[in-house]
């Protein structure tokens, strides 16, 4: 199918700013879905609030646009009632790890089968460029005019320690890897977290003088390496990309079904 068959064309051009990386993630997601040959009727996109959350409105799947930070809670409800559906939860960095931080760690701990895509642009774009828990020490944002003194979360470390059974990271520059990792995350039988570094040229790029969208993507090319690369040993500041965790653990919906049959036998 052509990519345009997976989107609601009447809402295009989309609301994202010129050069916003979220569009590249949408692009990669549609490619992944197309390659996998998934039926549109079997996919549910559940999102919260923010620039990233608008993605659920553009895809021609079942979609829920819910409360800020609570997308995973709604998604848990959807998945438990209809475990046969593929549930994809796109979230921004603030949505996933500030407002929705608790939902995030507990969904990971439960190992419920769904795909959480953390679209990390390190800023609250929709509300005017406030710093987020992923902005990082020393960065600039509208609410930290003298520089940010908060340290950031490492999404991969956080998701791993919270118990996610699939954890990966990529960027909007690495588009082939992006579609490939989205495919693997969707195929994983458990809670999968994919962090995608994505540019916000309007707020993060401009405030931190990184440059336009293309220059921000050049930074992803320069500052990231594949897991296990020798470059990382030479320069520990480089950020690793790839699959960090991929393991099998009992999945929540299947365990819940077992509990129901156990209770009925008694």
């Amino acid at each position: 199918m052509a990519l345009k068959d997976y989107i609601r064309q009447r809402f295009f051009p989309h609301i994202w700013c010129p050069g916003c990386g979220h569009g590249i993630i949408l692009n990669g997601l549609l490619r992944a879905v197309d390659t996998m040959g998934l039926d549109k009727k079997n996919i549910v996109m559940v999102s919260g609030i923010g620039c990233s959350a608008r993605i659920s409105g553009y895809v021609d799947f079942h979609s829920l646009h819910t409360l800020h930070g609570r997308a995973l809670a709604f998604a848990t409800g959807v998945k438990l009632s209809k475990p046969e559906l593929n549930v994809i939860v796109p979230m921004g960095d603030g949505d996933a790890l500030a407002i929705g931080g608790n939902h995030f760690i507990h969904a990971a701990r439960r190992n419920i089968e769904m795909t959480a895509i953390v679209m990390n642009n390190r800023v609250y774009g929709m509300t005017g460029g406030q710093f987020s828990p992923l902005s990082g020490y020393g960065t600039m944002a509208t609410t930290v005019p003298y520089g940010n003194i908060d340290h950031d979360f490492d999404v991969v470390d956080l998701a791993t320690s919270a118990g996610a059974t699939f954890v990966a990271r990529t960027s909007t520059y690495h588009v082939h890897e992006l579609a490939e990792l989205i495919t693997k995350a969707i195929n994983h039988k458990g809670f999968s977290v994919l962090e995608v570094l994505t540019q916000c040229p309007t707020y993060f790029g401009r405030r931190n003088r990184i440059g336009d969208a293309s220059e921000m993507m050049e930074v992803y090319k320069k500052n990231t390496v594949r897991i296990g690369s020798k470059k990382k040993q030479e320069n520990p500041d480089l950020l690793e990309r790839g699959i960090f965790v991929q393991k099998e653990l009992p999945e929540y919906c299947r365990e819940y079904d077992n509990i129901i049959s156990k209770a009925r036998q008694k």
Partner: peptide, 13 residues
């Protein structure tokens, strides 16, 4: 197809 894959607006084919 790098233009198509990287287009944030899904405008290039």
């Amino acid at each position: 197809r790098m233009c198509e894959l990287r287009c944030p607006d899904l405008a290039v084919e």
